[in-house]
Design a protein around this nucleic acid. Structure first.
Length: 459
RNA sequence: GUGGUUGUAGCUCAGUUGGUUAGAGCGCCUGAUUGUGGUUCAGGAGGUCGUCGGUUCGAGACCGAUCUUCCACCCCA
């Protein structure tokens, strides 16, 4: 026997049952995006490595899947593919020689690339959504795959905070439709985070602060402060930080307290103002009960964010965030088009799927599958049945015939396993009378119907 | 990337200090029922024990490597 086939680490097949459920999530998200004026876009699976590298930080670059150059790349460089000097410099210097392309790591950077390449044809503000898989050479875990889908919606060419508010609305709508109730949309602002570093006298160390603060609820205050000391924060700075480490009260109260703390930082106050405005807009849309929480400990890794940042977590489910995003002032700058501000966010469908499965939120759905199966007795009945089958399909009824003249038992078992609700029997009696026998597989009841009656019943 | 964990029938799992022919439940196939599934009864098929190598008279069990799974960290959707 040949070797058992397998698929690469961190990838998955999606069977028909899973696909029905995934499509259910996809279509809800698409519908919502389109309702808010976003239009679809697709970009290639592969991008040039020059497009991808340097956009996600060192960690991100490590996680890029690279595509080996095709053809006889050996001959292009003469007999020596890689010189000894290059080898000594390490793999980072060797990879560009044998690989020029990589699999996309997210949808935002390819989008920025698209905007720059098509700047003359795009009328701004430009809203697009994009639902495609992305790849990361991460170590897989629950809710963490090497190939997974992102559903991004971004708008570029406007600084309006209405966009931020609309993101909150879209998240609320999608989760509402999917039946996820216990979740929170956390919002923070990069400007607030840099304000904090200014106030405590550690300007320029935003990233370290973010990473440490992010773990507050996980490892506790002491360990966080310890980590900050390790990263070179002064005792004074840490002492200054202490008062704001324990957020309590409503988002409004937290914002007020943070405003007080940030009085000496212009940037910080700007962040507060922006966050307030997002709240105002959300309220302006009439959404009173948005699950929006201001959380100054929220810090997202991607370093292109400059304004609001979002993250959505489902409560009481041990899975990471299911959605996230933020504002970036200059994502297209690296591609030579400065001053195009934008906001975007993304749904992690694979995680939403896992969450919904755990919470048993998928509705029973069979409308995609066959509604009626015709039993195949013999050649005469088969010929007769094909006409019936065509009539059913013309009436938009999902129908199929069992393709082989197998035993009844086998055909019934097949229908049962496929959860086909009705089975139609066309034998000699039926052909003689014109009344076909329809069996309801759930109740087991049977009745004789003409083709017209049949269509009427199954419609 | 660091540390740990897992792998036995299609699925969920047993398998004693290393010892003859590796088991169960569910599923699958056949028949009781030659035009009736989901219930019942009777019978049957299916395993190079993840892969490769080693120790041993003898390995599913011990050792090494590798792949895979899951977990913690890192990071993230």
């Amino acid at each position: 026997m040949s070797k058992k086939p397998s698929i690469p680490k961190g990838t998955r097949d999606f069977g028909p049952k899973q696909m029905v459920r995934r499509n259910y999530i996809f279509s809800n998200i698409k519908e919502t995006f389109q309702k808010f004026g976003y239009l679809p876009l697709e970009t290639p699976t592969m991008e040039n490595l020059s497009t991808l590298t340097g956009k996600y930080g060192d960690e991100g670059d490590q996680l890029l899947f690279k595509v080996l150059n095709s053809g006889d790349f050996l001959s292009k460089r003469g007999k020596t593919l890689v010189g000894e000097q290059e080898l000594e410099k390490g793999y980072k210097h060797v990879t560009p020689i044998i690989s020029e392309k990589g699999l996309r790591y997210d949808l935002t950077v390819p989008f920025a690339r698209y905007v720059v390449m098509n700047r003359n044809d795009i009328s701004f503000p430009f809203k697009r959504y994009q639902i495609q898989p992305v790849w990361r050479a991460d170590r897989p875990q629950r809710g963490r795959y090497r190939e997974f889908y992102q559903c991004d919606a971004d708008v570029v060419g406007t600084k309006s905070l209405i966009c931020e508010a609309e993101i909150v609305l879209m998240i609320t709508e999608v989760f509402g439709k999917l039946g996820i109730e216990d979740y929170s949309i956390k919002i923070n602002n990069r400007k607030i985070l840099s304000g904090i570093t200014e106030v405590i006298g550690a300007k320029g160390h935003e990233t370290d602060l973010c990473v440490a603060i992010d773990k507050l609820d996980k490892i506790g205050e002491d360990k966080v402060l310890e980590e900050l000391t390790e990263k070179g924060f002064s005792d004074e700075a840490i002492e200054n930080l202490r008062p704001i480490l324990h957020p309590s009260g409503s988002s409004k109260e937290r914002l007020a307290r943070m405003e007080e703390f940030l009085t000496s930082s212009e940037t910080g106050l700007k962040g507060i103002e922006e966050t307030r405005k997002v709240y105002d807009y959300v309220a302006g849309f009439g959404l009173e009960n948005a699950k929006l929480e201001f959380d100054m400990t929220l810090a997202r890794g991607l370093n292109y964010y400059t304004g609001a940042i979002f993250e959505v977590k489902v409560n009481n489910v041990s899975i990471g965030s299911v959605s996230g995003g933020g504002r970036y002032d200059d994502l297209t700058g690296v591609f030579g088009l400065p001053d195009v501000p934008g906001v975007g966010f993304s749904f992690g469908v694979d995680r939403i799927y896992d969450v919904m499965e755990e919470l048993e939120l998928f509705p029973e759905q069979h409308q995609d599958s066959t509604k009626v199966m015709i039993c195949n007795f013999d050649e005469e009945s088969e010929r007769y049945s094909l006409k019936v089958l065509s009539s059913l399909r013309q009436a938009n009824i999902n129908a199929e015939i069992y393709p082989d003249q197998a035993k009844m038992k086998k055909q019934m078992t097949f229908a049962n396993n496929k959860e086909i609700p009705f089975v139609l029997m066309v034998g000699s009696q039926e052909m003689a009378s014109g009344k076909l026998t329809l069996k309801d597989m759930k109740s087991g009841e049977q009745e004789g119907l003409s083709v017209e009656e049949l269509i009427e019943k199954l419609k």
